[in-house]
Every structure is written in C-alpha cells, then in structure tokens.
Design a protein around this nucleic acid. Structure first.
Length: 580
RNA sequence: GGCCCCGUAGCUCAGGGGAUAGAGCGACCGCCUCCUAAGCGGUAGGUCACAGGUUCGAAUCCUGUCGGGGCCGCCA
C-alpha cells in the first residue's frame, strides 16, 4: 500500500474530471503532478503541486485550479481538509481512518510492506567488489561491497530481477606477480629462503598457499624455469585467493550470484568478437593519440595503436584497445566482458567502482552504448574513500608498517551489522569517516545504535505485553480497533511509515541505498519521540493498564518494528531484539 | 591543461525544480518515584563557495570563476 500513489491517483482522477467538465483544457500532461510529504508538518499530511504545474499549460491561475481540485478531493472520505497555500500548493489533511488502515496494512503485509513493482521484473546486473584476486580484501573494498549488496537488495525489493556479479581480474600481469610471490612461499615451504623481491606481494597470507603448493606438487616445481610452473601456480594461487575473498565477503554478509573470469575471455574469441562488432560499426581504427595536456609522461612518444572511437559515444578522447606491442589493453577484455553482460540480456547494467576509476566511466559507458545500440543503460557508481579513525584520531594504514587493515579485521572489530550500516550513512560519492570506537558507542551519535535501540524498545513493549498474557501476534493486532490513535505524535509516526514505499521507489530509481539508512534514522527518531512523550502523558505509553487500551498502541509499535526490519533487511543488517 | 566528484549551521552531513533550507554533534536551558534517560523537548547558530543564465519558482538545472579531492597513452 503506497499511500502517496493512492492519493496521487485520486488527484489525477479529479483532474480528469475537471477536464471532462471543461474546467481544464484537453490534452494536459499530468506527469509532473506530484503528491509529496510537505516540508513542514503544519502544512498538512500531503501536498500536491498540481495547480502550479498546470497553470501555464492550462492558461489559468494556480489558485483557480487548486480551488476546483480542492472541492473534488474533499468529496473523498479519505480527505479531511484541502487548503490552497503559498504559490499554489494544495495541502491535504487526511482522515485519521486513513492512518489507521495504513497501520493495519503494514501489519498484514509484514516484511513485504513497501515492496514495489517499478522494476517490472527487468533484469539488472550489479557488478561490484571485483577486487583483484591477489590478496585478502582490505578496507577499501568494504564500502563498495556493502553499497553494491544493499543496492542489489533494494532493487530486488523494488521489483527488479537482480544479478550480483563479481568480475575476477585474473587475466593481467598482476596474477603473474601473484604466481611468482606464491612460488617463493612454495620454496619457503620446502625449507628454502624465499626471495620476496621488490614488486612481489610480501603478505603472510601467501604462506599457506606455499604450503598447499608443496602438498600438491611436492618438490616437482623446484628449480624449474618460470615457463614450466607459472601457469599452474597462477591458476592455483588465484583459486586460493578467490576462496579467501569469498570467505571475506561471507563475513560481511555478501553473496554473489556469479563470478565471471577475465581470463576466460581470452582464447575464446570473445574479445575479438566484441572488438569486431565495434569495428563493424566503424568504431575501431588505427591511429595516434594526441599527447595528454599538462605534464607529459617522460617517455611519451607518439605511437600508432588500435583505438576505440569512444568519442562517438560521449567520451572526450578515443581510447586504445591494443598496446603498441599488439597485445590487448585492460580496456579490451573489459569491453568484451560488458558485451557479454549485454548479450546475456540484461536491461540495465550497474558498475560499482572505486573513485580512482573515475576516469574510466565515460569510455565504459561509450562501449556499452555502442555495443547495445544505446538500449542498455549503464550506471556507474563511484565509491569514495573511507577514512579510518580510532578515538577521533586518524588511523593510518600502511602495508609496510604492518597496519594494513583488512576487511576481516574491520568486521571482527566492529561486526558486520555495524560496518554495513555505517557504510551506508553517506552518499556514495562523498568520503566517509569510520571510527572504530565511535561505531561501537551506544549513543545517539551512532546511527546504528539509534535505529537498533528503537527496535529494541519495540520488542520490549511486545515482551511486556506477552508477559501480561496478551495476544500480540500480527494477525491479532491487525484486527484491533485503532480509532483511539489520534495524538499528533502517534499519527506522525504512522505518516512516517506511510513514506516507506515511496522512499523505496525513489531510492531504487536513483540507485541510492543510503536513503534507506537515513529514512530508518528518521523513523527511529519519531518512535523515540513518541516513547518519551509517554513520560509526561501516560496515555501515550505503549503499554497501558488494560489490554484493550494497550493493543492499539502495541499495534502501532509493532508496525514500526516491521518497517524497521524491512529497511534493515535491505541494508543487510540484522535487527536486534534487545540492547545489551 | 583536460575530465570526474565535492563545497549547505562552529563540526559531520541530508535534501538535488516548489512554501519559512533540515538532522546529528558541539553550546545553552529543561525532562526520570513512570514501558530501557543508551532517550526526549526547547533556544541560539545559514548571503546553500561566488557570479551570471533558464524558470511562475533555483541550494537543486545550465555556463563561468574560485577552493578541496581524484584520474589522465602501451597499469590493472
């Protein structure tokens, strides 16, 4: 039940009637007509901009349209008041019964309340994390992982058919480095002194890989040339790294639907096919790029390369797909990979990248635009840095100093739930501070706690009720007469719940999961506010002397808990029943 | 030099065509014999970086400027 959608439908039908009666001209476009929560609660429960939006095309004064609209809306039992205000807003007050039936609807729908269908079962692919398989995941990956996962949850809830995908960069030079590093650990496992040369990965996490290599190959790889063992060790080590990464992701509560391999694109003709398709559209040519402006790389010299005419699809310069030695650039398999995604029939692609990949956005969009004939939109979310703090002091991390923070350490320190929530308390393109002490603090500074505390209070109410022997199952509560819920603080809480389905749609349309976290904070705030009013006004307490007086209040509390749980589920956070 | 992101209260940030721009922290003043005060209420605090433009209406869209960050051929 999306109350805003219902009232908007009511407004539209009233407008249709005005057209039918000749009060408005034919052929007006109503798409810009919105029904929204007013900025100021004093303005009522909902506001519509209909009169202002239509004034010009209709050639009438906003007030005139608003008056006609108000009269018709008032005829509906749901509307208790309709006042023209400001430059032509129509402020609506809703009958208390509307709020009561909404509360009932929440209880009946349970965790399905707010589920939307705007996705229309369209297939969307969310590619995220895609960390190089050369080591454990570190803090830098955490935010992207959480944002991607929460976004996938959100889109699924809003009616999309979602695939979560991880692109394994196992085709480039870095996995050769991994192989060489693992090989040294293999030698170490055999009792030799490892030579961790400059440029190799020094991390301890490769020691068990060396052991495993020893277990598998004995000393058969020893004293052999690289050409003999490189491919095998590379595949073996990559697999081990991916196993570790999967475990890291699992610790964060992230599960992928699909792992796609870059290496698998080589040798299958997929890269060639993707490039050929671009060539068929005359988007591939041999050429020499202009030198970049500003400071030149010292060894810069003009060279002929195979270039993708990305400028034809909105990029600033054309991009090389082949190096001057004839091998593919990193971009080429990326093109092939995105072509593969397009070919798999997705209606929409989303990539979650680190902000340092910002320079890649235009060329990637250009490639997808070209390869899909402009049919498949690609949205790329750039994830800004997470700055670590401890007790308010910057927490410096450096691989060399050994203060290299892994994802696992973050989860072990802060917990997956806290980590996930915190990662969503900022818009993706703004840097985020993460303080190891503060996120565990039990105060309202800490939004995770604040929301969880609201839920704990609700559960406390339910516990008390059960102790009193009252039946507070959803099925029972949804049948309770709620007409006693009339206080503004109670109705404000219900009104906030009414916003949930609308918020889901807005957040999903914009691929903005952080909005859910902010919404939950507001909802929790309304709950806490009402709770504390119970200090002064006993009639506002959730638990009253009698069962009949309590049940409507408890229904309200329980409904709020349902929405909190639904929201937390999208964030991938477990609601707590009790604070400890 | 080019491209991308950011600039909103002392601080950290929401809001991204609509009314008198919001929240938390910090400051100040209040609220527990009472469901969890781990909370709540109130006060003070703003030329929404700046300048133009589009619009009935701009913090929001466009252009430019300034400031902070990121990226910038054969790295992934």
């Amino acid at each position: 039940m999306n109350l805003f959608a219902e009232i908007r439908a009511l407004v539209i039908s009233a407008l249709d009637d005005m057209v039918a009666k000749g009060e408005l001209p034919q052929g007006l476009d109503f798409t810009a007509v919105a029904v929204e929560p007013p900025r100021d609660a004093a303005h009522g429960d909902m506001a519509t901009n209909a009169a202002m939006v239509l004034a010009k095309p209709a050639g009438q004064q906003p007030r005139q349209i608003a008056e006609g609209l108000a009269g018709r809306l008032m005829a509906d039992p749901r509307v208790a008041g309709a006042d023209v205000a400001g430059p032509g807003f129509l402020n609506l007050r809703l009958d208390a019964a509307v709020w009561h039936s909404l509360t009932r609807a929440v209880l009946l729908a349970g965790k399905e309340y707010g589920r939307a269908s705007i996705g229309q079962k369209q297939k969307v692919n969310v590619e995220f994390v895609s960390a190089n398989p050369t080591g454990p995941m570190h803090v830098g990956h955490v935010r992207g992982a959480v944002v991607g996962d929460a976004l996938a949850n959100l889109l699924a809830f809003a009616g999309w058919d979602v695939t979560r995908e991880y692109y394994i960069n196992d085709g480039g030079a870095q996995v050769d480095v991994l192989a060489r590093s693992a090989y040294e650990r293999y030698r170490e496992a055999l009792g030799l002194e490892p030579e961790i040369r400059e440029g190799l990965y020094p991390g301890d996490y490769l020691i068990p890989v060396g052991e495993a290599l020893k277990a598998k190959y004995g000393d058969s790889l020893l004293d052999k040339g690289e050409q003999y063992w490189l491919a095998e060790v590379r595949d073996f080590a990559t697999e081990q790294m991916m196993a570790m990464i999967r475990e890291d992701l699992a610790a964060l509560g992230v599960r992928m639907d699909l792992y796609s391999s870059e290496k698998a694109l080589y040798g299958t003709g997929q890269i060639e096919a993707a490039i050929q398709r671009l060539r068929d559209m005359d988007l591939i040519y041999e050429g020499v790029l202009e030198p970049p402006k500003g400071q030149l790389p010292e060894d810069w010299e003009p060279r002929e390369q195979t270039l993708f005419r990305s400028t034809a699809h909105g990029d600033d310069v054309d991009r090389p797909v082949k190096k001057s030695d004839g091998s593919w650039t990193y971009f080429a398999p990326d093109i092939a990979y995105h072509y593969d995604k397009v070919s798999r029939g997705y209606d929409q692609l989303i990539d979650i990248f680190g902000a340092d990949h910002g320079g890649y956005v235009k060329r990637m969009k250009a490639a997808v635009s070209a390869l899909s004939g402009g049919k498949v939109p690609l949205d790329i979310k750039l994830i800004q840095l997470v700055k670590l703090f401890k007790g308010g002091q910057p927490f410096k991390m450096s691989k060399r100093a050994g203060t290299f923070v892994t994802l696992r350490e973050v989860v072990e320190q802060a917990g997956a739930d806290v980590t996930r929530f915190m990662m969503l308390t900022r818009k993706n393109d703004v840097a985020l501070d993460f303080d190891f002490d503060k996120v565990l603090e039990q105060s309202k500074d800490n939004p995770v706690f604040y929301v969880q505390y609201a839920n704990a209070r609700i559960n406390s109410v339910l516990r008390k009720a059960r102790e009193a022997g009252w039946i507070v199952e959803d099925a029972t509560l949804s049948g309770v007469d709620l007409s006693g819920l009339t206080h503004p603080a109670e109705l404000a809480l219900i009104a906030k719940m009414a916003e949930w389905p609308r918020l889901v749609e807005i957040a999903a349309k914009g691929n903005e999961p952080h909005r859910v976290a902010f919404y939950l904070y507001e909802l929790a705030s309304d709950l806490h506010s009402l709770w504390n009013r119970g200090n002064d006004e006993l009639s506002l307490r959730f638990v009253q002397d009698s069962e009949s007086a309590s049940l409507p209040k408890i229904a309200l509390a329980r409904a709020t808990g349902v929405v909190i749980s639904a929201g937390l589920a999208i964030l991938g956070v477990t609601p707590v029943e009790e604070m400890r």
